[in-house]
Amino acid sequence: MSEMLKVGMADLKVAKYPNALTTLGLGSCIGICLYDPATKIIGMAHIMLPSSKTIKNNSNIAKFADTAIAKLLDDMKLEGANVNKLVGKIAGGSQMFKFSSGNDMMKIGLRNAEAVRDILSEHRIPIVADDTGGNFGRTIEFFSESGVLRIKTIGHGVKEV
């Protein structure tokens, strides 16, 4: 029996075949999904902010893109994944509320997505699917068997990438 393990907000988890990972109701946060095709080990992080470096209270490493990705890689390595062969898929980063004179905090989804792309590229992890932006929420399900990421929305359909 395969299990669907939940990843909460500011949380990260690693799973092995045949299990799957899910995070519900992503808004401006980003779901970062990493997959090792050879071992079928998967990892998922639900980050809220781009960088731990500008924040004083930064003990929750799963909250920030930089520290969450580093921890996820460590955890996947411990489980036996080859971190040099990972592929990445990302989703989320929407702007839920629109304002004409948006300050930086209103565009946090965009900044989160940029930060995640940069950090994954620093770790030389190719992003094979990128479903970010828009103004709607997403629930994501990530399957270890195939590396498929299913993205569900309200009113914007369901897709698999």
Binding site: L49, K63, M96, I154
Partner: peptide, 19 residues
């Protein structure tokens, strides 16, 4: 500004500010 969507997505906005 109004949004009708998943609770998690809508509440991510204040959660990030508090974050």
């Amino acid at each position: 500004s109004l949004a009708l969507d998943m609770a998690g997505a809508i509440l991510s906005v204040p959660a990030i500010h508090f974050g």
